[in-house]
Design a protein around this nucleic acid. Sequence first.
DNA 1: CTACGAACCTGCCTGC
DNA 2: TGCAGGCAGGTTCGTA
Length: 278
Amino acid sequence: MPELPEVELVKRQLVESLELPQKILKIEFSRFDLRNPMPRNQKHLIQNQVIVALERRAKYILFKLASGDTLVTHLGMTGSWRFAGTNESPQKHDHVVIQLEPRPPSESVINLIYKDPRRFGFFEFCKNNQQSALLKNLGPEPLNSEFSGAYFYAKLKSFKSPIKSLIMNSKIVVGVGNIYASEALFAAKISPFRQPLRMTKQQAEDLVQAIKNTLKQSLLFGGSSIDDYKHVSGKSGEFQNLHQVYNREGLGCKVCERNIKKKTLAGRSTYWCPNCQK
DNA sequence: CTACGAACCTGCCTGC
DNA sequence: TGCAGGCAGGTTCGTA
């Protein structure tokens, strides 16, 4: 489901609704076999802890606890969070229920529920500011200044796979998934199949800026709702309506009106305009 | 070290 | 109507 804009928006919406700090009364895992085994044996370490902050790193959402411990979560392809009263009936594929401490004036218990049909998401509990192994070896955040044309140009030399694979490689830059890779390449007028070695310094700079702009635009428009991505409130994003190439095979390019093409690259559907992108 | 395909899993859509 | 096949926003693993 989610790439950087969608994950960032989910994190922001959770922060808004949680009114941190917020105490976890109880956490229940109803199944244990997501991408990694659920931290069910650490349940007692999570309960009664206070959430003080939520952070995003790459596509991970980190629940920072007052003790210094962290609950690391990932939405996979189809993960979602929602708030629900205790009287609301559970849905199919609800796997985690976090019961939050009631607050005045309502005094009623609110559950924060994680649902994930395909179960590609995951949860990991990290003690005492220890960093999850999954967060090591990650490249820079695309919206940070560290991700610059100079940085990216220097990385191009050691890779032989096409440029699209490179911008989806989390060692190079995090958060760019299959939608935004195609969209950013279109914005930069660069073919997804281009060999990184054959890119100029200017093109590297253009692509970096295109990635930043595309992600920022998507954030402004509430992310891309293609299939089941929804806001925490259940609302859909709007950025899918602004996609230039993704999911537009056979439709006219919004710039030159020629047909958008689709081809599989490294196992992923890749959309581009052969006329605009060289 | 990189590169590629397969694997994980459910649901939805298409075509026969 | 049913059923098989293909495909989906992510990541890791095994094999070249």
